[in-house]
Simulated scan of single mutants.
Amino acid sequence: MSWDDVDNKLKKGVDAGFVSCSESYEKAYIKKTIQEAFGKKFSSDAIDRAIESCCDSVKGNRPRDKFLACMKEKLGS
Results as ranks from 00 to 15, higher is better:
V6D: 12
G13D: 10
D4W: 07
L10G: 13
I47R: 01
C70W: 08
V6E: 12
S2R: 08
T33F: 07
G60Q: 09
K74F: 02
I34K: 02
K12L: 13
F67L: 05
K27G: 11
K41V: 06
V19L: 00
R62N: 14
D7P: 02
R62E: 14
E52I: 02
I47H: 08
L68G: 05
K72E: 15
K40E: 15
G17N: 13
S77K: 02
T33A: 05
K59F: 13
S77I: 04
S2T: 14
T33V: 10
M71F: 08
K72I: 09
S77L: 01
L10Q: 15
K32M: 14
V6A: 06
C54S: 10
G76F: 05
E52W: 00
D56G: 07
V6H: 07
Q35W: 08
D45Q: 13
D56R: 03
S22D: 14
N8R: 09
R62C: 13
K31H: 10
L75Q: 11
S43K: 10
S24R: 14
L68K: 03
K9D: 13
S20C: 05
A28N: 15
K11T: 06
R64N: 01
R49H: 09
D15R: 04
A16K: 13
K27V: 04
P63L: 11
D56P: 01
K11P: 02
W3Q: 09
L10D: 13
R62H: 14
S53M: 08
S77F: 00
D7T: 04
I47T: 06
K32F: 10
R64V: 00
G13P: 04
K27M: 03
A50P: 05
C55W: 06
M71W: 14
V14T: 09
S24L: 02
D5F: 00
K66A: 06
K12P: 05
G39I: 01
K59L: 13
L10V: 12
L10M: 12
A37V: 06
E23A: 07
F38S: 03
D48A: 09
I51V: 03
A28Y: 12
E26T: 03
K12V: 10
S53G: 12
M71G: 04
C55H: 05
C70R: 04
L75G: 03
W3N: 08
R49D: 15
D65K: 07
D48H: 05
E23R: 09
K59A: 00
F42M: 01
K32D: 13
C70L: 05
C70V: 03
K31E: 11
L75D: 12
L68W: 00
K32C: 10
S43L: 06
S44P: 08
D5E: 15
G76Q: 11
M1H: 13
S20Y: 15
F38C: 02
K9C: 10
G13M: 03
A16E: 15
D15P: 05
D7A: 10
W3I: 10
I34A: 00
M1R: 14
S22C: 01
T33H: 06
D56F: 01
G17R: 09
K40N: 15
S20H: 14
D7G: 10
F42L: 07
D56C: 01
S24F: 00
G39T: 06
S24E: 14
M1I: 08
Y25E: 15
P63I: 14
N61M: 14
S53D: 12
C70F: 02
D7K: 00
G76H: 02
